[in-house]
């Protein structure tokens, strides 16, 4: 790196850290909430229906519809 390694590699490292960090955190959150929802539905809470991100026709948000 022509004597500039101490500047070039940390720059790439910082960007990699930010991008990989957000990507891993996003997957971890998604998995955690999926597991929570599955546990609640297994316990009989709410209507038994697939998670909103896997069911196009389900409403994942409170839309005012009646729920048991």
């Amino acid at each position: 790196m022509g004597g500039y390694s101490a500047f070039v590699w940390p720059a790439y490292g910082v960007v990699a850290l930010v991008m990989v960090g957000f990507w891993l955190a996003a997957w971890r959150d998604l998995r955690r909430h999926r597991d929570e929802l599955a546990a609640l539905e297994a316990a009989g809470l709410g209507r038994r229906r697939p998670a909103p991100d896997t069911a196009p026709n389900s409403a994942p948000r409170n839309t005012g519809e009646a729920r048991p």
């Binding site: 996003a26 998604l30 909430h33 929802l37 609640l40 809470l45 709410g46 991100d53 948000r61 729920r67």
Partner: peptide
Amino acid sequence: VVILRMRARLLARRVRALRLA
């Protein structure tokens, strides 16, 4: 990544709504 994060937030809302119910 923003889609992943949105999916996680929508699931979190559903979990919160179920707990409140």
